[in-house]
Design a protein around this nucleic acid. Structure first.
Length: 203
DNA sequence: ATCAAGATTACCT
DNA sequence: GGTAATCTTGATA
């Protein structure tokens, strides 16, 4: 494991590329959260691009609403949504204000604060290796492990509470592209990106 | 006011 | 493989 450079936060500029490009480039980057003054961190290994109102599968499809308004703000904000009556999922908003694009973070490999993540997920800090894989291998698992909920919707990712650290780009031969998961419209678009063979890619 | 669907997960056979 | 859990949202009236 490479040493983490906490001074190397992604700047606002990073989030202003086209949403698919940001989704691909987020692979390997480090999501960090300061939670009750404790450090939680993990490497992003799976992400999906969601477009603006022209993408039928996107929350932005109906246009700007109270639920999705953060998607329509400037890139570099955190969009958190509630779904299925019990789960939260988190996204990085991309593009200029009004575009409505975001990247759903679907898989993370834990780096720091694993005990606290386990406490958030399973209510105890001691876990088996099998349970460790289950900590953050899915979008709603990530928010539970990181303690992210509706209160974090709209958080600035260039701030000091929840942010993403830069990391060397992942070689394209180590990245796979596929259809997005769990959607019923525009199902064939290849807008999901993940690191080949990583255990924390969602199943 | 009412209703159907949902960018999921855990647990069952 | 299948499905219950659980509640907010956006659409329609």
């Amino acid at each position: 494991m490479d040493k983490i450079d906490f001074t190397n936060k992604l700047s606002n500029e990073f989030y202003f590329s086209p949403v698919k490009e940001v989704a691909r480039r987020l692979l390997g980057k480090i999501l960090v959260r300061i939670y009750n003054k404790e450090l939680l961190a993990g490497r992003i290994v799976e992400a999906e691009a969601y477009g603006g109102p022209s993408d039928e599968a996107s929350h932005a499809y109906p246009g700007k609403t109270k639920r999705n308004e953060v998607m329509f703000k400037k890139g570099g904000l955190l969009y958190v949504y509630f779904t299925y009556g019990m789960h939260f999922c988190c996204n990085a908003v991309t593009g200029p204000e009004g575009k409505g694009e975001a990247v759903l973070i679907r898989g993370i490999e834990p780096i720091a604060g694993i005990g606290l993540m386990a406490l958030n997920r399973f209510g105890r800090m001691d876990i088996t290796s099998k349970e460790k894989i289950n900590l953050t291998s899915g979008p709603a698992k990530i928010t539970q492990a990181f303690g992210i909920s509706r209160h974090d919707n709209g958080t600035d990712l260039t701030g000091d509470e929840i942010f993403i650290l830069n990391s060397p780009e992942i070689a394209s031969k180590k990245i796979s592209v596929s259809k997005r998961i769990g959607i019923k419209k525009s199902v064939d678009l290849p807008w999901r990106f993940y690191i080949n063979g990583n255990s924390f890619v969602s199943k």
